[in-house]
Write a protein that binds this DNA or RNA. Structure first.
Lengths: 143, 143
DNA sequence: AGATTTAAGGATCTTTTTATCCTTTTTAAA
DNA sequence: TTTAAAAAGGATAAAAAGATCCTTAAATCT
């Protein structure tokens, strides 16, 4: 469904969000340990999320990553867009460049439904809500 | 959503199915033209589908690809499984190896819904039904 | 039998994705 | 002000996916 980059990115951002609700900031080392991802690769992904103003990075001792209060309202769809683009929402299931209601591929209307439900889910799920669920439910981010 | 191989494969198999309903068999050259895919690469994909007994290949002059009558009942999910495996149905949205209702990732229950609707769609859509829709609706397989 | 047409299959190349390494920059603390 | 801790960023490597080429095998027609 998503690329590895996007999977790591989502896990990272969810972990940072959850820690942010506890007033902790977290280092790259901690993140990659806690989400079980390759550290240097995760660094690249976090750079992208930082440049796109989704997470905030702080250099130097006691630095790390955190999410600013108003950014806790960021939706998962924004993270996915930054890391994988939005072809998952807009693209044709059979890979056709031109495929819409007017000149649809044979599966167009069946795919639209699924893509829309995915899009809705991602667009309606904020980092804050996932973080809160996590704190309450003890869901996991590694293994 | 799917790999390129799987996109080409689905388009190819749908095209062959549609032609089969018209009692035509089609050559690799025709297929790759009609679905707008790289010919040699499409050949590899069709070999896989042939070995997995989804399409039938006939060598020699007037040869080509066709689908046997009873195989027109093949579901899209079988084609996807052959070409992309079934991680799209069973895998975790965040890429965790172990993620299920017992130890779920933070998005597990939201993803289950979407994956299930995708799975249902693919498991309930036969080659025959897509081919028939195509013949009636003039949907497209290229561009 | 020989020539031709078509798929099968092996080898290889290219591009993209995934991943690592090393140096530089920033910041805080001693 | 030196040292250490952390992220940023450039260069490169490894693996996977996508794509091509060429030879072989099978089938049909002459």
């Amino acid at each position: 469904m998503f690329s590895k980059s996007c999977e790591y990115g989502l896990r990272a951002v969810i972990f940072i969000a959850q820690q942010t609700t506890q007033n902790n900031k977290v280092s790259l080392g901690t993140i990659s340990e806690e989400i079980n991802s390759p550290q240097a690769f995760t660094a690249k992904i976090l750079q992208k999320l930082t440049r796109n103003d989704i997470v905030k990075s702080i250099k130097g001792p006691y630095g790390g990553f955190t999410i600013e209060k108003e950014k806790m309202n960021t939706k998962l769809s924004e993270v996915v867009s930054v890391l994988d683009g939005d072809s998952i929402y807009t693209g044709c299931g059979l890979g056709l460049k031109q495929c819409d209601a007017n000149s649809p591929c044979p599966l167009h209307f069946k795919f639209v439904e699924i893509r829309d439900s995915l899009r809705n889910m991602l667009e309606n799920t904020s980092l804050k809500s996932v973080a809160d669920d996590m704190t309450a439910d003890l869901t996991i981010l590694k293994r």
